[in-house]
Design a binder for these strands. Structure first.
Lengths: 202, 202
DNA sequence: CGACCGCTGTACCGTTCAGTACAACGATCG
DNA sequence: CGATCGTTGTACTGAACGGTACAGCGGTCG
């Protein structure tokens, strides 16, 4: 039980289960997403699901990983933050996604954080996912600092944390409000706050 | 069915049901909070619950109202924002709550927004609650503007929205992380952003 | 005092849930 | 060709779910 997929066929099956679960849980929440609905959505059977996952909780863990992968894949600019202009581009990339046809979309990690933030097992995994996300921002800021674009006494980790918090709040409010204005505004604030620590150029 | 409470006894019963539901739903999420658990927690019977509420969904609506009331009651300073110092006090009040024994606590509205943000019935109610919360901040900023402390061209509504977004993001991250640092930092950013629009004093 | 009505207790219903049991498929490899 | 093993289909279980039915309580007021 809870075996790892070894064949290509198995990997495909496992992946399609996680995909279906990720989509349904994003839209309806974890508790409201039954295993039967997931399996119906991807055409798999229950024995397959319990072949790859010990239980529903372990599937949620896989879904969290999937969320993080998707999030980072949707903002490739985050891997290339070596100038202030790149940070602007990163923000533009985020906003472009939100301006897409699916309207303002929430952060799937944030959704889970709301529902499962007090779950002793899940909360640390969400924290871990957020930290990885944040680490890419921190690395960008370190690059800026190393290139003399950021003050030496600025704390990249803490600035990255604040920037992520801004993003989360903006996404949450934009989603509930069905309007990206709060996200646009708060990202501008986040970037302006970062630039407060810009090193004056010679 | 779904009658309004008329006697004091009835009001007490209804209140205790909403209280129990609010607490359990905050901790475990809406879907994971069964009616039986709620009723067991407050000692009421099922007939009582269905006497005051049409169904579980309508109870969630009552819980949202309760959340807003509790939130505002916990930050009375929000009703008295007529100087920049009062904004600082408001932030201090928020942080004091978070430094309390229950550790970093999430925003109950934010929790529901994560789980039910795509629910056609619930999302507008959350939006409405957030707007009322935000309106108190906006009114404070308008007061500042009328008193010549805020630039005339600043938009109190939009600034209030950004401030609330900061607060939400900070609360979310602080809760998942079990550390209020992100909240402290982002509230400082939020206030600094507001003060950017302070009118230079003569 | 008796009819009314807001309130309460309890037993019950059909459905859905997470999880289990178990047999069988099909490719690979000795 | 037959054993093995990753994989899959189907049928099932006991518990928990939201919601209903209905009788009975206990004040108030005509």
């Amino acid at each position: 039980m809870a075996t790892q997929a070894t064949t290509d066929q198995g990997k495909r099956t496992r992946d399609s289960i996680v995909d279906a679960a990720a989509q349904l849980m994003y839209t309806n929440g974890v508790a409201a997403t039954s295993l039967d609905k997931i399996l119906a959505a991807c055409g798999a059977g229950k024995s397959q699901m319990y072949h790859y996952f010990k239980n529903k909780n372990q599937m949620v863990e896989a879904v969290i990983e999937r969320y993080l992968e998707t999030i980072l894949a949707n903002q490739p600019q985050i891997y290339d933050l070596d100038s202030w202009e790149k940070f602007d581009l990163w923000v533009e990339q985020l906003l472009d996604i939100q301006r897409g046809p699916d309207g303002p979309i929430a952060c799937p990690l944030g959704n889970l954080a709301g529902e499962l933030g007090d779950d002793e097992k899940i909360a640390p995994l969400l924290d871990k996912a957020y930290r990885e996300w944040e680490s890419h921002l921190a690395r960008g800021l370190e690059t800026l600092r190393d290139n003399g674009l950021l003050n030496a006494d600025a704390d990249p980790g803490r600035l990255a944390q604040s920037t992520l918090a801004c993003l989360q709040g903006g996404l949450l409010l934009a989603h509930v409000r069905r309007d990206i204005t709060p996200l646009v505004d708060i990202l501008a604030i986040a970037i302006a706050n970062l630039r407060l620590h810009a090193r004056p150029q010679a």
